[in-house]
């Protein structure tokens, strides 16, 4: 377990677990309270950016790969990841535009529109099944890495 920082896949694994946990926490504002929801969502940017930084090669190559002969599954996941990114931004943007704690605390007044409330609710609900499929696409990796991480723990 202690060598996870030296291994790209293990680094990704630890960061992915963190990402999933924080995602699940901020997706339950009824449990955390709205104020905590808003501040936690703001900090959620950090694990999210880390997730993207750890896949920099993918970011650089994915678009051009769409125009080459690749397997159907890879084509699907590239498009799916783009959609997931767009939807995630939609959740963020609409979240800020319906903020009742964070923006007022920063002395920013806004007039909350029904439209953005609906978009925030709908996109935040839709992103859960989208994340489910995102995880399914990398399921064999998740299983493999989980086994590796557990094995290491027993040895230490």
């Amino acid at each position: 377990m202690s060598d996870w920082k030296e291994n790209l896949h293990k680094t990704r694994y630890v960061m992915d677990v963190l990402l999933l946990f924080s995602f699940m926490l901020i997706s339950a504002p009824q449990s955390t309270g709205i104020a905590a929801h808003e501040w936690l969502s703001l900090f959620f940017v950090v694990p999210l950016v880390i997730h993207l930084l750890l896949h920099w090669d993918w970011i650089k190559k994915s678009f051009l790969r769409l125009f080459t002969r690749i397997q159907g599954k890879e084509r699907f996941s590239i498009i799916w990841n783009y959609l997931l990114y767009l939807l995630m931004l939609t959740v963020f943007v609409s979240g800020f535009l319906v903020s009742v704690a964070l923006l007022p605390a920063l002395n920013i007044d806004l007039n909350i529109q029904g439209f953005w409330s609906k978009i925030h609710h709908d996109s935040a609900t839709l992103i859960m099944p989208m994340l489910g499929v995102h995880l399914a696409l990398y399921w064999s990796w998740i299983v493999k890495l989980s086994k590796q991480m557990l094995k290491k723990k027993v040895q230490v």
């Binding site: 699940m24 009824q30 449990s31 099944p129 989208m130 489910g132 399921w139």
Partner: peptide, 18 residues
């Protein structure tokens, strides 16, 4: 309940996709 909802909304599409 909010977490149960998340497990269902993430888990079922995950299973279906698999």
């Amino acid at each position: 309940l909010p977490f149960v909802k998340e497990f269902i909304l993430i888990g079922i599409p995950l299973g279906l996709a698999l």
